[in-house]
């Protein structure tokens, strides 16, 4: 077994373990913190697939922003975080069984597909992909209009968020 495979197994198990902890914690803040570990594991998997840009985005956006926003939302909305009823469902065993059956049948079905074990074609090194992406984003023949539209959309989202979250006058 190569070191890469060892790292993959470790990261994959850590990600699955963290994801399992997310759905079994009663305390929502703890669940959100375990979600950060799971998201980080996915970022490492992106790196191992040589998708450096996606890994950076995963850490920057999902861990840096989405997870923080979730923790904020939990801490802002719940008066008492500890006071949560038992979250286990009495059909949990059956649901688990169905999920395992569904997943294994999907894997068996997909394994029949001839290119299931095929390796991906080698791509450019990570820096070159990002340079290509950056050039395409701002070139007039590429995606410059969506690029600028994204800016306007973010502006609209920012103003909308401020209008919604601002305290009303006289309250």
């Amino acid at each position: 077994m190569t070191p890469i495979q060892l790292v993959f197994l470790f990261v994959a198990f850590a990600t699955l373990w963290a994801a399992f902890m997310v759905v079994t914690r009663n305390n929502l803040v703890h669940a959100a913190l375990f979600l950060v570990i799971a998201l980080f594991g996915v970022a490492v998997l992106f790196v191992m697939l040589e998708a450096g840009f996606l890994a950076v985005i995963q850490v920057l956006v999902y861990i840096g922003a989405i997870a923080i926003l979730m923790i904020f939302a939990v801490m802002l909305t719940r008066g008492d975080v500890d006071d949560i009823p038992d979250i286990t469902n009495r059909y949990a065993g059956w649901v688990g069984l169905v999920a395992v059956l569904f997943f294994s049948s999907l894997v068996i079905l997909m394994a029949q597909w001839p290119s299931f074990t095929a390796l991906a074609k080698p791509i450019l090194s990570s820096r070159d992909t990002i340079v290509e992406l950056g050039t395409a984003l701002v070139s007039p023949n590429g995606y410059v209009i969506p690029f600028e539209v994204a800016s306007v959309m973010l502006l609209a989202a920012l103003i909308g968020a401020l209008v919604v979250a601002r305290p009303r006058k006289g309250k």
């Binding site: 956006v61 926003l69 950056g134 984003l137 973010l154 920012l158 968020a161």
Partner: peptide, 19 residues
């Protein structure tokens, strides 16, 4: 929320800055 918007902005500016 304001932080989130500027964080998403980085996604677009990062490839632009690298190239």
């Amino acid at each position: 929320l304001v932080f989130l918007i500027f964080d998403i902005e980085t996604v677009f500016l990062y490839p632009w800055a690298v190239s």
